[in-house]
């Protein structure tokens, strides 16, 4: 697969945050993506945790630095400090608990208050495997994502459904924005941006909700 590469071998480093209510499955989405692992015994995240994984976009290696934050509101004062510099976000809700979807709006505001305006956000409805318990329809969530101009996907960390796609799509989009910006500036993106530095998607690119999954393969 070529998905798991040597740690320091990368062309781009993107910071991505995982947010959303407590117990929606953020930590398991992260462990599924970075270690292909799911734990039934996972505990509440205290503060922040962290993992990385590199994927390939075109001929470039993109390293994702993914920050997993505590879901409880009480921790916001602390977790929001970690939003700084994030160029992507997966805003997770639980498709079986309506309240976690209701709170998405507040998380979105939180994200937009603390990050760059061009951050790539994906709304992620996790626990899609619990079909008989579903409380939010795909259409409702999709409609919300379109209105808010974010990407959208339903996932199951348990069944490894769409987890790869969700992260890859967000990373691809960031990559697309960054390389396009660099091209417009007439620079070779690889030399313009020093290795190991977090990249800000600072341009005026319009990141729309209906972008198709692009060039990346994990």
């Amino acid at each position: 697969m070529g998905a798991y590469r040597a740690e320091d071998d990368y062309d781009y480093l993107f910071k991505v945050v995982l947010t959303g209510d407590s117990g929606v499955g953020k930590s398991n989405l992260l462990s599924r993506f970075t270690r292909n692992d799911f734990s039934n015994d996972s505990r509440a995240t205290i503060g922040v945790e962290f993992a990385t994984r590199s994927i390939q976009c075109d001929d470039k290696i993109v390293k994702a630095q993914i920050w997993d934050t505590a879901g409880q509101e009480r921790y916001r004062a602390i977790t929001s400090a970690y939003y700084r510099g994030a160029v992507g976000a997966l805003l997770v809700y639980d498709v079986t608990r309506h309240v976690t979807f209701e709170n998405v709006e507040r998380w979105l505001k939180e994200l937009r208050d603390h990050t760059d305006a061009n951050i790539v956000i994906m709304l992620v409805g996790n626990k899609a495997d619990l079909r008989h318990l579903r409380a939010i329809s795909t259409e409702d969530a999709k409609g919300f994502a379109e209105r808010e101009n974010t990407f959208f996907m339903e996932t199951s960390a348990l069944e490894a459904l769409n987890v790869e796609n969700a992260f890859t799509e967000v990373l691809t989009e960031i990559y697309r924005v960054v390389s396009k910006k660099a091209l417009e500036a007439g620079d070779d993106p690889t030399t313009a941006l020093p290795k190991g530095q977090t990249i800000n998607v600072g341009g005026r690119d319009d990141i729309s909700a209906v972008k198709k999954p692009g060039c990346c393969s994990a």
């Binding site: 117990g23 015994d41 996972s42 505990r43 509440a44 409880q72 509101e73 976690t100 709170n103």
Partner: peptide, 17 residues
């Protein structure tokens, strides 16, 4: 009243091992 019902969830996921 705890937003997101984390209390109940956390009881279920305390020291499950």
């Amino acid at each position: 009243s705890d937003r997101g019902f984390s209390a109940g969830l956390d009881v279920a996921r305390t020291d499950r091992h």
